[in-house]
Amino acid sequence: MKNPDINSIDDLLANELFRKWILEKDEAAAIFWSQWIEQNPARLEWVAAAKAIIETLTESDKQLTDLEINREADLIQQKLLSLNPAMYDDEEPGYLETYNNGKELGSKGILFLPRTRGTRHLVGIAASLLMIAGVYWYYNNKPRPLPINAYKAFMQETKHKSFEYKNNSDGEQHIVLSDGSEVVLEKNSRLTYAANFSSGKREVYLEGNAFFNITRNPERPFIVYTQTIVTKVLGTSFYVKAMSSDETASVVVKTGKVSVFKRENFTSTDAGSPTLKGMVVTPNQQVVYDITNEQMNKSLVEKPAIAPQTTYSFDFDDTPAIEVFNRLQAAYGVPILIDEEVLKTCTIAASLGNEPFYEKLRIICKIINATYEVIDGTVVINTRGCK
């Protein structure tokens, strides 16, 4: 096979055998270029840069038109020129041709590349190209919501025909929806839902604050949209605070499990799926969304409560510490992370009653010389164990 005349990166880009190696993974081409690199180790930076450009533009072709690909090639050229204009003063322009599976797409963008420069310049150029190609690839290939955002689809549907509850009174308004779900709407709050709620999706839009007690139906998830966040449940009770005048929005779970999303990230797939994704929140946990900084944080509520209609005994008589923490976790629904191997010799002797959750936790930890911290809505027990 004839040794190609390669004097620059754009010579690699124009070489059909090089494109065949990169795009088609051709075995013969791979062997040839492997040998060529061994014979020309100083040209490795060119190979890396050319490979990055070809892969970036051809992968992006799945989403971009030929004209857009050409425009992006021009942007790469402009970026390189802006890095060091003097470097290209006496260089000739080359053409960056885009291909898909070895077939020329016909769009070209001018790419200025030096033909005679020292190794230091070449390394810098290659690094710049790789950086630009990498950033460009990320922004064109990062996960995105589906073309039809679930929130937009819902708002479009309710625009034509919907029902609305608006609480202008000084007290709470109790609402029973057609699926049996209950909503306690606070004052100055509004609840909107599509006319097909009883036969189609269980979706509502909330402006303000409300407590929801949702009838369980895994086949038809219940979705609460607000201005900034979306809450999806299968059947549970929770509180949503989403006043438009507030700097934060929050979801507090009383029973069951919910998932919370940023509104712009919630897709039609998320809406129709029977599983819970997003940020999953369990009893006595809350999600607070900082609207200004666009950050969601999960934590424990200030006063965790025992699950409704359940009773637990907190009388411990030399009870293994592992069992004590498991009982506490079951009663409050709060995840408690322990090292069972370290705690296997520890026992608890204490009679606890109506103390708040954190007080119970403090007493138990003191008995076994442990400490605790709350991380992302989970209690983490720190101890060296018991002798």
Results as ranks from 00 to 15, higher is better:
Val379Ser: 00
Ile9Met: 12
Leu337Pro: 00
Val258Asp: 00
Glu24Asn: 09
Glu72Gln: 12
Val380Asn: 14
Lys298Ala: 09
Ala331Asp: 04
Leu57Trp: 02
Leu361Asn: 12
Glu91Trp: 04
Phe154Cys: 09
Thr267Glu: 07
Glu164Ile: 14
Gln227Cys: 07
Ile306Asp: 14
Val123Phe: 07
Asp90Ser: 12
Lys161Ile: 14
Thr226Cys: 14
Ile54Met: 05
Ser259Gln: 05
Glu27Tyr: 12
Val288Thr: 07
Asp376Gln: 14
Thr311Val: 08
Thr269Ala: 07
Thr65Gly: 09
Ala14Ser: 13
Asn101Cys: 13
Asn3Ile: 10
Glu45Lys: 06
Val324Thr: 07
Ser245Thr: 10
Ile69Ser: 00
Ile53His: 00
Met87Cys: 10
Gln227Leu: 15
Ile229Cys: 03
Ile338Phe: 01
Ala370Cys: 08
Asp315Trp: 08
Asn141Tyr: 04
Cys346Val: 03
Ala73Pro: 00
Gln39Thr: 15
Thr383Trp: 12
Asn369Met: 15
Lys360Gly: 05
Lys241Ile: 00
Gln309Phe: 15
Thr119Phe: 11
Asn297Leu: 11
Ile229Asn: 01
Glu355Thr: 08
Lys20Met: 08
Gly171Arg: 09
Arg117Ala: 11
Asn140Met: 13
Lys344Ile: 09
Val260Phe: 04
Asp66His: 05
Ala330Ser: 06
Gly106Gln: 02
Ser245Met: 10
Lys303Asp: 14
Gly200Thr: 13
Met155Ile: 15
Gly109Gln: 09
Phe238Trp: 03
Glu264Asp: 15
Pro85Ser: 11
Leu146Phe: 06
Glu203Cys: 10
Arg43Lys: 07
Pro145Ser: 14
Ile291Gln: 03
Thr65Ala: 11
Glu72Trp: 01
Tyr136Phe: 09
Lys360Met: 13
Asn3Cys: 13
Asn382Lys: 13
Cys386Trp: 14
Tyr139Pro: 05
Leu105Glu: 05
Ile381Ala: 04
Asp66Leu: 15
Gly171Gln: 15
Ala321Pro: 03
Ala28Met: 12
Gln286Met: 11
Pro85Val: 13
Ile125Lys: 04
Lys161His: 10
Gly235Ile: 07
Gly106Trp: 00
Glu97Thr: 05
Gln63Gly: 04
Cys346Gly: 01
Leu343Thr: 04
Arg216Leu: 03
Ala349Tyr: 05
Gln295Arg: 09
Glu24Arg: 07
Ser8Ala: 11
Phe112Trp: 07
Leu57Cys: 02
Ser250Tyr: 02
Ile22Cys: 03
Met87Tyr: 13
Met243Lys: 15
Val135Met: 07
Gln39Tyr: 10
Ile53Trp: 01
Ser162Asp: 11
Ser82Trp: 08
Val324Phe: 03
Arg384Trp: 15
Gly180Glu: 04
Leu83Ile: 15
Met279Tyr: 06
